[in-house]
């Protein structure tokens, strides 16, 4: 991209998106042992939080005041004040937490423990473990239905999505998907669940009423080896029209039309694109690119990649708070 064009695009985005003054982006850097904080408007790095080991999954409370980080090698969830970056008391997580999801109400937190084949449920206020739910081998992806009634865990070696009732902590259904399921994301209306399978190379679209797979979305990019097309992070726009799928070592984000369930575009981003997050207004999509140590910023309206910003070493997860 030529510098002149770049400048214009950047200016127009800042103007069009008009994020709130305090908007911030938090990026966990798995190898750097840090969280990079970027300003949501300028996309400049404004702070680096240190003092954690192998941060991976990252999320924020619904009010945007607290940021939760899976510190995998610390075996706990670290909590930070999004305003001051002060570290708050940690949450127990069970061993080797990788990914988690917050209940839509902001409590509790559901954590996948890769080493123990369990999902740990933690009350973020009392910091007590509420339950441990046995699931398949190597639990990884976590999703929660918009009504908060079902939390989904994907197990990477068992190759299933386990639907867990958030009231009883019992598994109510299991759906077999393709190899090494990494991420689970509901559509905003809760009617469909998207599950990415990294090694299988597909995203399964599950009808949540029947728990049946209605379609497996495959990916194909000319000039890219099929085995490099490895879907990982998935996000769905607030209007439910489009899904974005990070394709790992293919260095692309696929755009899926959720009406037709067809891939409409592939966006070239940084290397080993891993997880995705929208800006609070939903106008921008941020991608973590693990091998190029940067994030890419995508304009959701036009599906154009606007720019990339260097963060820490091996960025893994990302969350934006208002």
């Amino acid at each position: 991209m030529r510098p002149a064009q770049f400048g214009i695009l950047l200016a127009s985005v800042a103007f069009a998106a008009g994020p709130a003054l305090a908007e911030k982006i938090f990026v966990s850097n798995e190898k750097g042992n840090t969280v990079t904080v970027l300003d949501g408007a300028s996309h400049e790095v404004i702070h680096t939080i240190e003092g954690m080991q192998r941060p991976r999954g990252i999320t924020a409370s619904p009010d945007g005041k607290h940021v939760y980080v899976c510190a995998s090698d610390d075996n706990l969830v670290r909590v930070y004040d999004a305003e001051t970056y002060e570290e708050l008391p940690s949450l127990p997580s069970g061993p080797d937490p990788e990914l988690f999801v917050l209940h839509p109400s902001g409590n509790p937190l559901y954590i996948a423990n890769e080493d123990d084949n369990i999902v740990t449920v933690v009350d973020v206020e009392t910091r007590q473990v509420l339950a441990e739910v046995p699931v398949g081998v190597e639990p990884e992806g976590m999703g929660v239905s918009p009504d908060g009634k079902i939390v989904v865990n994907t197990s990477e070696t068992t190759n299933m999505a386990h639907m867990i009732d958030t009231e009883t902590y019992e598994i109510v259904a299991n759906v077999l998907v393709d190899s090494r399921p990494r991420f689970a994301q509901y559509t905003p209306d809760g009617k469909f669940l998207l599950v990415s399978a990294e090694i299988g190379g597909t995203v399964s679209v599950i009808d949540t009423a029947t728990n049946e797979i209605v379609k497996k979305i495959g990916f194909e990019v000319p000039g890219v080896l099929p085995e490099a097309l490895q879907p990982v992070g998935v996000r769905v726009t607030a209007d439910g029209a489009k899904a974005y799928v990070a394709l790992g070592p293919a260095n692309r984000v696929a755009v899926v039309d959720l009406g037709t369930l067809e891939v409409t575009d592939y966006l070239l981003v940084g290397q080993r694109v891993w997880q995705l997050a929208f800006s609070p207004d939903g106008k921008l999509l941020y991608t973590t690119n693990g091998n190029s140590n940067d994030i890419s910023i995508i304009d959701v309206a036009t599906d154009k990649v606007l720019k990339s910003v260097q963060v820490g070493e091996q960025p893994w997860g990302v969350v934006a708070v208002p």
């Binding site: 441990e132 046995p134 386990h162 902590y169 019992e170 598994i171 259904a173 299991n174 759906v175 728990n211």
Partner: peptide
Amino acid sequence: MKMKGWLLAGAALVASAAWA
């Protein structure tokens, strides 16, 4: 707790047409 979870999961599987 753990065993109960599995048994219930099994029961749910029987009920679901997708599962045998």
